[in-house]
Design a binder for these strands. Sequence first.
DNA 1: ACGAGAACCTGTTTGC
DNA 2: TGCAAACAGGTTCTCG
Length: 277
Amino acid sequence: MPELPEVETIVRGLRPQLVGHRLVRVIARRPDLRIPLPPKFAGRLRGRRVESLRRRAKYILAGLDDGAVLIAHLGMAGQWLARRCEDAGQPGAHDHVEFETDDGMLLTYRDPRRFGLMTLTRENELGVHPLLASLGLEPLGNEFNGPALSAALTGRRTPVKAALLDQRVVAGIGNIYACEALYRAGISPRRMAASVQGVRAERLAAAIRSVLAEAIEAGGSSLRDYVQSSGELGYFQHFFQVYGREGEPCPGCDCGAAIRRIVQSGRSTFFCGHRQR
DNA sequence: ACGAGAACCTGTTTGC
DNA sequence: TGCAAACAGGTTCTCG
């Protein structure tokens, strides 16, 4: 489900609920997520105070007061819900992990498909952790620009759409924002990645930045599952120009072409064959 | 070594 | 209406 803007929105929503607070109760109801929960998961977290909450790519990282770091990923359908304990009621069938904080909040990790994960590492081992070590540049970071993007795409003999989904190239882009960024940049999703250089790479880097930043402003995109931790819906889906719009007229110009849907690497790609070259 | 496709799992939508 | 197939925002493994 969630791509960078949705994960960022969730981190921002959870931060005031978690940072500075102690975890007084941890319930690991279902350990068989994509990667099984580590041994003694709940016991290692109980009583710890959360010192920081941040995002790297689509991962949520919570720094704890004993130097441990909780790594969490939402997979395709994961959600975080933040409610007061007394408002929570019975746990749902897919509420796999819950954290109760010292001021009475219940933070619930819900994930019907169990493609998400949660694991523990140490702050000083984050950089070499297998889940994080080979991630590419953060697209909203200072070092991300046209030259950096073209360098990352150099030598890639795959369509640029597939390259954007490769987290080693740019970290955090998923299927929706890859389609939207390529549309904004006027670049065909089928163009070979290695040929996106120079001004094309500049345009694509700018498009990635702008679409992600605008989506964060909107609180992410709510399609099927996604809600903010507060339960509010994001609304960026109303600004999609191509994603999910097969057959509709291209919105960005008067070319009159219809948005097309093709399948690349097993994923739907939406684009305008006239405007994107 | 790299890239395409399958697999992982459950829920919802679509088509006959 | 009912059932089966297709599809879904991600990642990782296998195979060619």
